[in-house]
Simulated assay, not measured.
Amino acid sequence: MRILQLLRAQPTQDGDGVNIRRVADFHRLALDPYLMLDEIRSDDEKDYVGGFPPHPHRGMETFTYIRKGGFEHRDQMGHVKAIRAGKVQWMSTGRGVVHSEMPLADAKDGLHGFQIWINMPAKDKMRPPQYQDSGELQHSVIEGDGSQLYLLAGAWDANQQQAQGPLTQLAADSALADLSLSANSSISIDFSRYGFSAVYLYDGSLQSPSGGAVTAGQLLVLDSQTQVQIVAGEQGAGMLLLAGNPIGEAVVQMGPFVMNTQAEIMQAVRDYQSGKFGDIV
């Protein structure tokens, strides 16, 4: 496993005072096609009870994965869906979406989840919005000796097994999976079909190829064209795996809008302010 870059998640707040840890890159595009990864994790509801009241998006995709607790999603397209533990939700915002994400009232034992922003190519940024979740779908699992790869989206090749996650339409052929490794166990993953691959460690530690350990809260950008062997530390490890094909286009971002030029950003603001995005009903 060759590590190209290591980024540490930074504590911040978003929505109505929700405490999160974030890795983001809207400028150097070292994560292309990904823009941002947010981790929400707390057993204290004060850290997340405010949720994410109605807000707009244009020009990017949101991918939400819940490991514990849940959110209720509402949008102007009429979708009202509860996303609970083990399930994912994808929203390709295109020309405009207004949505909210609020913690479920019956989720009393804390919250652990992720929202990932994926860029869209310029040719698709003004297409109609799309929505899909895995609520009624099965998630494939690739298991090995001490490893369990829970597939969330896209195509995967691990331990000489091939399978797909339940969602397959993400921009830039993006693929995501949740990997659990027991103490000192390992998994071999073939990322060669992708131009970008990364690991976000949320539990435990990994053995670094250069010696030492990689600890939780770090994102490792990997060389997808070399052999990737992920090895857990003494306490085991839990991590998100991200892969996709870089879009290679300029990005201009302002808040929830991600476009290619400043003029397009200003048009997005005008369109939202004039009501063209619609309202949640």
Rank of each mutant, 00 (worst) to 15 (best):
W90Y: 06
S92N: 08
T93A: 15
T93E: 03
G96A: 03
V98Q: 07
S100D: 15
E101F: 10
A105H: 09
A107I: 04
A107W: 09
K108P: 01
D109H: 11
D109R: 15
L111E: 14
G113P: 06
F114T: 11
I116L: 14
M120Y: 00
P121H: 01
D124W: 04
D124C: 07
K125H: 03
R127L: 15
Q130P: 01
Q130V: 05
Y131E: 01
D133Q: 01
S134F: 02
H139M: 03
S140I: 00
V141G: 04
E143K: 13
E143I: 01
G144F: 09
G144K: 05
G146E: 08
S147M: 06
A153T: 13
A155G: 12
W156P: 15
D157K: 13
D157I: 12
G165P: 07
P166G: 00
P166T: 11
T168E: 09
Q169L: 05
L170N: 11
D173F: 00
D173P: 01
S174W: 07
S174A: 15
A177R: 09
L179H: 04
L181M: 09
L181W: 03
L181F: 13
A183I: 14
S185V: 05
S186C: 10
I187Q: 14
I189E: 11
I189R: 14
I189K: 07
F191R: 13
F191P: 10
R193G: 00
S197A: 14
A198D: 12
A198R: 05
V199T: 03
V199Y: 04
V199F: 02
